[in-house]
Simulated scan of single mutants.
Amino acid sequence: MEEARRVIERLERIEALDRSAASPAQLLEEVRGLLRDAEAWVRVEGGDSADDAVVRLRAALARDPVAV
């Protein structure tokens, strides 16, 4: 449950940064943190949909969103 709460809190921070016109580097750091939090959640909760979400997030980060 704590892992899920961390994911939700991280998403809220990302939304707040986005609204405040944060730099791409700040957003990217939070998204990387989101990936770490999501991985921890998957380790505790398991399940195919959680695994798929982590894979999609890793793929998005691999595309280097700062360069966009």
Results as ranks from 00 to 15, higher is better:
Asp64Ile: 09
Arg56Ser: 07
Glu30Ile: 00
Ala59Val: 03
Ser20Lys: 13
Arg32Val: 15
Gly47Cys: 10
Arg10Gly: 10
Val7Phe: 00
Ala21Tyr: 11
Arg10Asp: 06
Leu34His: 00
Leu35Ala: 10
Ala40Gly: 12
Ala40Pro: 03
Arg63Asp: 12
Ala60Asp: 06
Ile14Arg: 02
Glu3Asn: 14
Ala67Cys: 00
Asp48Lys: 08
Asp18Tyr: 14
Val31Gly: 02
Val66Gly: 03
Asp37Arg: 04
Asp52Arg: 14
Ala21Gln: 14
Leu35Asp: 02
Glu39Gly: 10
Glu45Arg: 08
Arg13Gly: 08
Glu30Cys: 00
Arg58Ile: 09
Glu45Cys: 06
Ala40Met: 06
Glu15His: 09
Glu45Ala: 11
Glu30Trp: 00
Arg43Gly: 07
Ala60Val: 04
Glu30His: 00
Arg19Phe: 09
Arg32Tyr: 06
Glu15Arg: 06
Arg13Ser: 14
Leu28His: 09
Arg5Pro: 02
Ala62Glu: 11
Ala38Gln: 02
Arg5Val: 04
Arg10Thr: 15
Leu57Thr: 00
Ala59Leu: 12
Ser49Leu: 11
Arg13Asn: 14
Trp41Thr: 01
Val68Gly: 12
Arg63Asn: 10
Ala25Pro: 08
Ser49Asn: 07
Ile14Asn: 02
Ala38Ser: 14
Val55Tyr: 03
Pro65Gly: 03
Ser23Thr: 11
Leu11Gly: 11
Gly33Leu: 03
Glu39Asn: 08
Arg13Tyr: 04
Ala38Phe: 02
Ala59Met: 07
Trp41Leu: 14
Gln26Trp: 02
Arg19Ala: 13
Leu34Arg: 00
Ile14Tyr: 03
Ala50Asp: 01
Ala21Leu: 15
Ser20Val: 11
Glu45Met: 08
Arg32Ile: 15
Arg56Leu: 10
Ala50Leu: 14
Glu39Ser: 10
Gln26Thr: 11
Ala22Thr: 11
Val7Leu: 00
Glu45His: 06
Val31Lys: 04
Glu29Ser: 08
Ala40Tyr: 01
Arg43Cys: 03
Leu28Phe: 07
Asp48Ile: 11
Glu29His: 06
Leu61Pro: 08
Ala4Gln: 15
Asp52Pro: 04
Ala40Gln: 09
Arg32Gly: 11
Leu61Ala: 08
Arg6Gly: 03
Glu3Gln: 15
Leu35Cys: 09
Gly33Asn: 05
Val44Glu: 09
Met1Glu: 15
Arg10His: 03
Leu28Asn: 11
Ala67Met: 01
Arg10Lys: 14
Val31Tyr: 03
Ala40Thr: 08
Pro65Asp: 03
Pro65Ala: 02
Asp37Phe: 00
Asp48Met: 07
Ala38Trp: 00
Ala53Phe: 06
Asp52His: 07
Asp37Thr: 03
